[in-house]
Amino acid sequence: MPDKMHIKLNVNGKDEEFLAEPRELLIYTLRERLNITGPHIGCETSHCGACTVTIDGKSVKSCTMFAAQASGKSVTTIEGIGGPDDLHPLQEAFKEHHGLQCGYCTPGMITRATKLLEENPNPTEEDIRFGMAGNICRCTGYQNIVKSIQAAAAEMNAAAASSSEAVGNKTVEAAE
């Protein structure tokens, strides 16, 4: 039996440190070791995207990465994106536009969508369908997921515009 490894992760802003066998997959670390159960195990074969997390700015299927590979990196799960009292605009939009039915794929969907909107704040329907292609939903038929992401993008862009306006005003004031 190989020696356990000393692994350090930052998960949702919190430092974690533990000993694990090298073969421990990150999804199991998150769910069973750290009790972070937002990322789900769907297919466990890199297809469905239910286990999607963000690692150093990339969307990653955590069933296809060893915790050892992620050692030293920052991991964000749905728990780090928003919570019941402070929903992320994507969570709000999925709720509002029926972007989920059973909800099993939703944490992975939304985690992936945060990254998609970061890379492309104004995606077309085609961009969304292409950018979300690594996440499978068996309930919605995707139509309402697309609508939810479009709604969240509009909401986030409006918020960004009004805050940059505010910043702009301040700049003007400062210049004066």
């Binding site: 890199s46 995207g49 990339k58 990653v60 990465m65 992936r112 292609a133 690594g134």
Partner: peptide, 9 residues
């Protein structure tokens, strides 16, 4: 090739 998550890795 594959999907966005897989293409990052």
């Amino acid at each position: 090739i594959a999907d966005p998550q897989v293409r990052y890795m």
